[in-house]
Simulated scan of single mutants.
Amino acid sequence: MSVIGSDEKVLSSRYMQWYRFSRNPAALIGAVIVLSVLLAALFAPYIVPHPDHAGAVVDFRSRHAAPDMAHWFGADKVGRDIFSRTIFGFRISLLLVFGVLGISVPLGATLGMLAGYFGGWTERIVSGLTNVMLAIPPLVMALAIGNVLEPNLVNAMFAITLIWWTWHARLVYRVSKSISAEDYIEAARMAGASNFHVLTREILPNCIAVISVKTTLDAAFVILFGATLSFLGLGVKPPIPDLGSMVADGRQFLPEKWWEVLAPGFAIFYATLGFNLLGDGLRDMFDVEA
């Protein structure tokens, strides 16, 4: 009976979480935006009118063409379709998000849990390393690494990942340290549970909500950060379409050729808005602070 009652309580809690999310218009809008960005990036070769323009294509007859039926968002300085390149640019932004967060979130969460649970020298080492890394301005660190290494997507991911894990480590450290003081953690230890069991079965599930919210919100910042590096010439190399480098290329032709900046700039805004709205919705759904 207790198991059934526990299952019913879990289902009731999940239903209430979904109810809060589904009643949040901003969260639903964010989910739709994120889904549309993911689908656009995934099916880019099939939905854009000029998929070959994502590569080294030159069409000087369409150079700086204004938006029309042939080029919905206009064409750039060498005649490439901006709409096609913008959709393909979502791929680079999402690769950056998955690459950076796929490394920094597990790394930061693991270090944060270890520091919060074990304390002592583990806590001092992780906290000291985190404080040192947080003392360095992220953009300065990324620019330094980008100048030393060859500008490409892998090095851009490395530059951002080197700093990004610290915020997840600090967040999970606070949560795990608080949970480690709970009575049920002490009861698990007294029952003979191993440290691995306590970390993975007792502490980690209670950190999933804050990690999910933080990761979703961070996706927007990673896109902005990656676009900034590309804008400064430290991102992917041409002719690979990247939203930040497209804005940098088009700004020299402002204000006459405004469409060359508007499309990639709006794409950055669209993607970051979606992740921010979704992250806020998840925060309200889980009722946590991140």
Rank of each mutant, 00 (worst) to 15 (best):
residue 57 V to F: 03
residue 76 D to L: 09
residue 72 W to T: 07
residue 66 A to M: 14
residue 66 A to T: 11
residue 83 F to P: 02
residue 60 F to E: 12
residue 65 A to R: 14
residue 73 F to A: 13
residue 52 D to S: 12
residue 57 V to N: 01
residue 70 A to Y: 10
residue 78 V to I: 15
residue 73 F to T: 08
residue 64 H to D: 12
residue 50 H to A: 07
residue 56 A to H: 11
residue 78 V to W: 04
residue 51 P to L: 09
residue 79 G to Y: 02
residue 56 A to I: 04
residue 78 V to R: 00
residue 59 D to C: 03
residue 77 K to F: 10
residue 82 I to G: 04
residue 84 S to R: 02
residue 56 A to G: 01
residue 71 H to V: 05
residue 66 A to H: 11
residue 78 V to Y: 05
residue 70 A to W: 09
residue 63 R to S: 13
residue 53 H to D: 15
residue 52 D to G: 02
residue 55 G to I: 04
residue 72 W to Y: 15
residue 73 F to I: 07
residue 80 R to E: 09
residue 84 S to K: 06
residue 55 G to D: 11
residue 81 D to S: 07
residue 63 R to K: 13
residue 70 A to N: 13
residue 58 V to L: 15
residue 51 P to F: 05
residue 60 F to T: 12
residue 66 A to G: 08
residue 54 A to H: 06
residue 76 D to W: 08
residue 72 W to P: 01
residue 71 H to W: 01
residue 63 R to D: 03
residue 83 F to R: 00
residue 55 G to H: 00
residue 62 S to E: 12
residue 82 I to C: 04
residue 68 D to G: 14
residue 78 V to A: 02
residue 83 F to D: 01
residue 64 H to Y: 15
residue 51 P to R: 01
residue 64 H to M: 15
residue 68 D to W: 11
residue 70 A to G: 14
residue 57 V to A: 04
residue 71 H to I: 06
residue 54 A to C: 02
residue 52 D to C: 00
residue 80 R to L: 01
residue 59 D to N: 15
residue 69 M to E: 14
residue 62 S to M: 14
residue 80 R to Q: 08
residue 57 V to H: 06
